[in-house]
Simulated scan of single mutants.
Amino acid sequence: MTDDQRALQHRIRAELGLTDAFDVDQEIARRVDFLAAYLQRTGCRSLVLGISGGVDSLAAGCLSQRAVEQARRQGHQATFFAVRLPYGQQADESDAQSGLGVIRPDHLLTVNVKPATDAMLDQLLASGLQFRDAAHQDFLVGNIKARQRMIAQYAIAGAHAGLVVGTDHAAEALMGFFTKFGDGAADITPLAGLNKRRVRALAAAMDAPHALVYKVPTADLESLTPLKPDEDAFGVSYEQIDDFLEGKDVGQDALQIILRTYQASAHKRALPVAP
């Protein structure tokens, strides 16, 4: 890396909350304390989180369940609602169910987002909207799925004086790998400041099985390419992203992709612009 690239790497790490030191047990305790304290400070009485079958929602779910249990011990009414949000039949449903077996949430709700998503697409097409091609339509429908899922979670949170928990972490934030106002919309993000490697460490320390901790990450939003690995979309690996976020050297090809993607996705990490 050049000196300028190294300086930019340090600035990005600071902006995304990365620290040099990492102790998994301390991080779990700190993040559980944060969730429990925020519930009590706001007067809210529940946490709501969509469980996808991936390690991010598994880790956030474990933290959330521990947080409401801690809040209850401290005399505060608190409940965790885990939500399954499939689009029809989910290809990795068994992984989602295995994750729920680890989390053991207070309550589980299942909301199929397919009818609402398909109805929205039908109305868009009826309005005269045209997509470039089938792949373009499929990609944008994936964004509709993500936003429908957040609509459901906020409805549940509204019904139970709750906060919506997000699964965004530093690796996804770096690459802008979330749907704006979809999975990127939440009230509280307990995985912030962690790269993927550290999210996996948290999940493993909270008794998640190896197969789920190291499952190939996928957003699974596109119907034409189900379970498409995140890394295929990135053009770089999570190992390279994590190394960058830990202040390590990465090759110039990967570095250029990371920096270019970070800059192009800046609007996703910002509040709406105003004059």
Rank of each mutant, 00 (worst) to 15 (best):
S64T: 03
A173G: 09
P115G: 01
D243E: 13
Q256R: 15
L63K: 07
T218R: 09
G176D: 11
T2W: 08
D23T: 14
M175D: 08
P190W: 10
H10L: 15
G75V: 03
P86Q: 10
T42H: 01
M150A: 08
Y87N: 08
G54P: 10
P217E: 05
A36S: 11
D20W: 11
R149W: 05
Q148V: 13
A266H: 13
I12G: 03
G17T: 00
D232A: 15
L18I: 09
L8P: 09
P105S: 00
L259W: 08
D253M: 08
T110R: 14
K228T: 00
L191W: 01
T225N: 14
D95W: 01
A205Y: 08
E93T: 15
G54S: 00
M175K: 12
A204F: 02
D242F: 03
D33F: 02
V164Q: 04
G142V: 03
L271C: 07
D92W: 00
G162K: 02
R149D: 02
R147K: 12
N195F: 11
F81M: 11
Y154S: 00
L212I: 02
D20A: 14
A270K: 14
T117W: 07
A270R: 15
V165L: 11
T261N: 02
A186H: 07
V273R: 15
L271G: 07
A71I: 01
